[in-house]
Write a protein that binds this DNA or RNA. Structure first.
Lengths: 196, 196, 196, 196
DNA sequence: CATGAATGAGCATTCATTCAT
DNA sequence: CATGAATGAATGCTCATTCAT
């Protein structure tokens, strides 16, 4: 399903992610994308069915990079609290590196229409189920607060981290990753009731 | 055909909020807005400089309703923990009632351009500064965890509540407000280290 | 036929003449006219059938001022050459004073459509017939070149003066009226073959 | 539907010149232009920034054709009087052939704003400087009246010819080019004081 | 006499898409 | 594989006109 064809596609992906992250999907034109990618307009329609299909492919691509960066992170973590720390670290790092993609995702997350809404739901579930797994494990082991709804808590923790990260990058870029991570980790662990 | 005056602006605001909340700013056409508002197209341009100016006015309007609903809520709260509980309640209620407006705000929050970005910043600061005040008070009084950065924590708590609320309304609408509020309040108080 | 009603109409005339002289008929909006005149939009439609009717009335008004300024000028002139000098003087003076109106006339002169084209034809014939009368007299009396077609010559002389005047006012405003008049009078008299 | 390339711009130029010459710039719609040119609306915006830019390009185009037709004409003329006769002939012929373009130019000449005013100034200077050169030569050689301001006289002669030509084409089309040229040449030579 | 909110047909412009090369 | 001139439906916006006050 993943398309490959030299770096033409990569340049289109990169250009589209940046522009859509900055201005949104509808406000980004195919002309702008191809101008930044340095290819001709027809090229988009040679590789994709249209603008929506390009974004769809791009989301699948981002989804894979995300999944890879997450699963690598939890391996070897000592217990749920450590795993959660690791996830905070991974998500912050991912958003910092792939800021444009993250903005794109956040701005489209709660839309109800759109051609690639399906892809976004999948992406979100990937994100959230990893958190849910760790939280469920913590609840079972007594490390986290009993009575927590793992699914709902996972969504909330995901949202905490995402909004904290974007707030940092957009409104307080002078702070370092370490500062943000330290403060955020404390709040996340507190939120799930980890003994501290 | 319609000659009723006075509520023309309100009808335009309501229509625009709903549509933009659902489909986003660029994807919402002026034709759609005026059709839902039941006014003629020219009316928008009689009252506003353009589509962007309508949204700007609408955001200022929403800002005022929000500020009112918040400041009413904290009055009479017994201490920071109670004030925070009250704020969680107020924000959840506000988002539930003004879901369209909230989606609009969240989808535009981290844009860097746009004509009404200024208004959004103000709105966000209003939001966050109320939280920051309560959290700072809690830190001083020893009710919340020492060493917390009140500003950053306020942003994060705001994001927690907003994402939890939208996640609820979009993905798990079968849950009741009370259920969501109970779970969320626990997590928020934990996040700021309130003695539980 | 001439409408009178306090200074409201005068202000509308003045505003319309200036704006249409500067930007042309189609490019001038009713909004701009009423803004400059300091009256409400509806006022135009209370006094006139519409924008075109306003211009029509305004042209009739200008026509009368013009006719007055011309007929006063030829009276008492000693022979055709003196009358022609007097007309050059009168037209230059008129264009200088009523520059906006003159630009309006010149820019619309050779249009073939338009609702007030009839008025412009009348205006032009007024202009030209005065010249034609003087030139015909000069031909008969032998003061001007024999064989001249009085009508065609009158048109040409009118055009000479008008273009020279506007060229002066737009491109060489630093020259004085006297300089321009002296040079132009010599050329006009030469053009009709006046002895010396 | 049309896919012929190459002459697309020429067709747009021709259509725009005709329509704007007849009805003026503002009163001419892009829809009318593309309908007459037989191309799609978007084509205008593919090649030009907008309607104003199309007119600007069109004026530059007309300027070049004009300059060519003029400089060809004066070569080989015997002395200033002959050169002036040749220029009268050239300008009459040009206006007759390119009547629409000439009307466009005359109707916009004394505007003070507009996006292509710059182009018109250039065009006018091209026109006038050729006349000014010939007249200056005539003054020096004693063929024309001493004391004439070559620049001002050139403007005036240009205006004489242009208004005479348009008056002829619009109001007295039954006359022949030869009749008009004969009468006009006499007046022009008289105006510059050529010994006759 | 005069107002100005409201109208809606008409306009310039945009932009995703097509297709001959 | 890739191009870019051309398309035309859709969009934001303008503006002469209407009408209740």
């Amino acid at each position: 399903m993943t398309r490959r064809s030299g770096d033409t596609l990569d340049r289109l992906y990169a250009a589209a992610i940046e522009l859509i992250g900055e201005h949104g999907y509808s406000a980004t034109t195919v002309d702008e994308i191809v101008a930044r990618a340095g290819v001709a307009k027809g090229t988009v329609y040679y590789h994709f069915k249209g603008k929506a299909d390009l974004v769809s492919a791009l989301l699948e691509d981002g989804l894979q990079r995300l999944a890879a960066s997450f699963s690598a992170e939890i391996e070897g973590a000592q217990g749920p609290a450590e795993a959660l720390r690791a996830l905070v670290h991974a998500e912050l790092l991912y958003i910092q590196r792939d800021q444009a993609f993250s903005k794109l995702v956040m701005s489209q997350m709660w839309r109800v229409d759109g051609d690639w809404q399906q892809d976004l739901r999948l992406l979100r579930e990937q994100y959230v189920s990893v958190f849910a797994g760790v939280i469920a494990e913590g609840i079972e082991s007594g490390a986290f607060r009993a009575g927590l709804d793992a699914q709902a808590a996972a969504s909330t923790v995901f949202g905490m981290i995402a909004t904290a990260a974007l707030d940092w990058l957009v409104f307080r870029p002078e702070q370092t990753l370490d500062e943000v991570e330290a403060a955020l980790t404390g709040m996340v662990l507190g939120a799930v009731g980890a003994a501290g």
